[in-house]
Amino acid sequence: MPFTADEAFNLLQSAYANNRLAHAYLITGPAGSGKRELANRLCALLLKEKITDLKHSDIHVIEPESKSRRILIEQMRELERNLHMRSLLGGHKIGVIVDADRLQPNAANAFLKTLEEPPGQSSLLLLSSLPDQLLETILSRCLDIPLRPVEARQATPLQTKLLHALQAHAQQERPGLVEAFRLVREFQTLLGEARETIQADADAALKAEEQHYKQTSEAGKWLEEREDYYKALIESRYVAARHSLLETMEQWWADALRQQAAQPAGELTSTLDQPTFAADTATLGTRHSTTTLLRKSDAFETLRQHLANPGVQEQLALECAFLRAFGE
């Protein structure tokens, strides 16, 4: 269950008071949930002094820096060296990995030993908006702290289109396989729109940079590096857009479960992820059993795991998930 940043910190504070803090935490949540702020507060607790934006001689922050916006193995090795060295102030040492989902595979694998056998008096904090992109071996070695935004977020245009498609599906009396395939096609169309928009924005940004740097002597080499950078940026933003749409799917079925548990039915709008569509999720809560709703929700949790595997074909994985969730 996701926490607010304040709720999470209170739990961590209690664990600290009882000497039960874990050595590695994975702080997850969307933009606006306070991941970095929570990490800063936990660092201040461990170091016993006021900290501002993770700035401290015993806090070692790693972020994507390469042209491909990835975290490289050299950065992880530097972090390991710093953690094995003696604290400058004779106390705790903390490694913070921002956007941990951007770890290159070899960097992630090299990091596993540190996760398994952390140096004395050290802690590791991993921050990520896309935890499903992390290796399972990393996920299993960290204690997860899922955060939720303090304020409700406005749905993006793509999320709004998806919600209306889900609404239309819910309003059908007996939707079957044909309707399930229609819904997955609409979802794939939305993904296509997302990629086109991201590609267009990246092309425009690269073109603007070309105009500025085309007269330099290193223009050829520079252009190749920037093309690599934008290629990685496009893929990263596409994965984030897909993640937001899958999150909407999970919220849809979670709301149906909440509606089913509400007494009287349909009067739970204040705690719904999508209150505008309360009547539709209430219908689903009445139509399906709890077991069925859990199975439908699980279809998208399984889909996330499958899509984290680079060998999985996206289209096939989507079709299988939608058939599980919507093939009545």
Results as ranks from 00 to 15, higher is better:
204 A>L: 13
327 G>F: 07
212 H>W: 09
243 H>T: 08
253 W>L: 11
188 Q>H: 04
4 T>Y: 13
71 I>L: 01
326 F>G: 05
91 G>W: 13
163 L>N: 00
30 P>Q: 11
241 A>I: 02
245 L>C: 11
197 T>L: 10
19 N>D: 15
247 E>T: 11
193 E>K: 01
210 E>C: 01
175 P>Y: 02
162 L>I: 07
319 E>L: 04
83 L>P: 10
184 V>T: 13
166 L>C: 10
311 G>I: 02
164 H>S: 13
112 L>K: 06
3 F>L: 15
116 E>L: 02
279 A>H: 01
142 C>T: 05
296 K>V: 03
81 R>P: 00
133 Q>S: 08
188 Q>A: 09
132 D>Y: 15
259 Q>L: 07
14 S>K: 14
108 A>M: 03
131 P>Y: 05
99 D>G: 08
52 T>A: 15
37 E>W: 07
139 L>E: 13
224 E>S: 06
270 S>L: 15
95 G>V: 01
203 D>N: 15
148 R>N: 09
121 Q>V: 12
195 R>S: 04
220 G>K: 15
317 A>T: 03
44 A>P: 12
78 E>S: 12
26 L>Y: 08
21 L>N: 01
222 W>L: 12
121 Q>S: 08
261 A>C: 08
21 L>C: 00
60 H>Y: 12
20 R>N: 03
87 S>K: 00
7 E>W: 03
257 L>F: 06
9 F>D: 07
250 E>T: 10
304 R>I: 05
314 E>S: 08
80 E>Q: 14
62 I>Q: 03
209 E>M: 07
205 A>D: 08
289 S>G: 10
325 A>Q: 06
131 P>F: 00
195 R>F: 04
221 K>T: 14
277 F>H: 05
56 H>C: 04
250 E>S: 05
44 A>E: 09
177 L>E: 07
26 L>S: 04
180 A>V: 06
273 D>G: 14
15 A>G: 06
48 K>S: 12
319 E>S: 07
131 P>C: 02
253 W>A: 08
230 Y>I: 10
9 F>V: 11
143 L>Q: 10
262 A>T: 02
246 L>F: 04
188 Q>K: 11
161 K>R: 15
257 L>H: 02
292 T>M: 05
126 L>G: 11
49 E>D: 12
286 T>Q: 07
115 L>I: 04
13 Q>I: 07
140 S>R: 11
179 E>M: 04
92 H>T: 13
129 S>A: 15
252 W>C: 10
47 L>D: 00
101 D>L: 02
9 F>I: 07
111 F>S: 04
23 H>R: 02
324 R>K: 13
174 R>A: 09
209 E>D: 11
24 A>F: 15
247 E>A: 06
10 N>D: 14
21 L>D: 03
183 L>N: 05
288 H>A: 04
194 A>N: 02
33 S>T: 02
1 M>Y: 00
18 N>F: 08
135 L>Q: 01
164 H>G: 07
3 F>V: 08
218 E>W: 10
200 A>V: 05
42 L>Y: 03
192 G>H: 01
306 H>I: 01
190 L>T: 09
273 D>I: 07
139 L>M: 03
165 A>Q: 06
